[in-house]
Design a protein around this nucleic acid. Sequence first.
DNA 1: TGTCTAATTAGATAGTAATCAAATCACCAT
DNA 2: ATGGTGATTTGATTACTATCTAATTAGACA
Lengths: 198, 198
Amino acid sequence: MQLEKLVHFHKIMGDPTRIKILALLSHGPLHGQAIAGKLGKTAPTITHHMTKLREINAIRERREKNTIYFELNLDSLRGQTTALLTLIQGKEREMESMTLTAEKLAVVRNFLDKEGRLKNIPAQKKKKLMVLEYLVQGLELGKRYPERELNEYLKQYHEDFATLRREFIMHQFMYRENGIYELNPPEMWDNKPVPSSH
Amino acid sequence: MQLEKLVHFHKIMGDPTRIKILALLSHGPLHGQAIAGKLGKTAPTITHHMTKLREINAIRERREKNTIYFELNLDSLRGQTTALLTLIQGKEREMESMTLTAEKLAVVRNFLDKEGRLKNIPAQKKKKLMVLEYLVQGLELGKRYPERELNEYLKQYHEDFATLRREFIMHQFMYRENGIYELNPPEMWDNKPVPSSH
DNA sequence: TGTCTAATTAGATAGTAATCAAATCACCAT
DNA sequence: ATGGTGATTTGATTACTATCTAATTAGACA
């Protein structure tokens, strides 16, 4: 359910220590003990909070020998902060923003071969997002996709379905709940600008 | 402290019932019992949640004979949802958005007499917001103003300092904590559009 | 004045969550 | 192997909060 995710996000954010962690990370990546030091908390406490932040996809991590560096996932945070607003301000538009503009389509077409399969996955982020948006058109809003079914769908476009599936999650096109995938509303996708005020 | 407010906002939002209430109100105003009915909760429970929502300025209320109608305060919600983002994404700009544009100033000037005092407080909301922004220029970001000091400052511009002070709070230019007033960051002011994505 | 309706307050209960100390795990380097 | 360092798990403690029932307040109206 969509509501649960929104609530969960805000519940996670409703804690001073976690907000401080995010503020710290906004200056650059840090490892666990550094965070613990700066906040005057013990290591287990930081682990606890990082687990929570991971649940809502607020951070990414990279390990280097024994220590783990955490950094913000700004795209994800942006999407989720605005999700509440889009839920609240007028139910009018729902599918409207779901259609690709013509000029985006032109870009995407460069990555397709004559059979309509992906020649490769764009490395450039902006273009990658356009391709992801293109792929997501074939999925249904509100429908629940078991992982196997999603893989089948993606394999039509590229053999590396696992990467595509991961990108869907990473960029908030879909979310996963016990192995079941489902589309997020378009407002949460990473390629969408923040909606203008009502 | 600014952090506390952010945390409080998210803590309040981290509850399914409250999110449902906001979603209901997005269709139009409702009174307490109607909300209770639609959500299958008792009246005291709704009162409880309304108190919380009031704390973060998420709702406005209007009474009609014996029943109270609640409605969303969208401006306030918009400001607070984006506050987290602006805290997190790069510390670069801070004062940048604090300057009035020339065309806004032109509007404001119509409300000032030759001594620079307010001839009256604009009734039209958009103009009122411009005037408030103008007044707030003389205050210092990060400084704490006891109520008496704030009154003195406002009295320079208009004898009805109480109204102005109330408007500052209502439109998120300032917040109050045990009788002490302090500026909110410009991103929270009601007259600011939602900031575009990074 | 008394009655009806809507809202609030008070008090109780049950569930959740932040934090720490102690123990454990995982990887690295000698 | 063995010792070291950083991260995680476990268990206990404490504090908070959503929800209900019962009691109370506050207007409106007749």
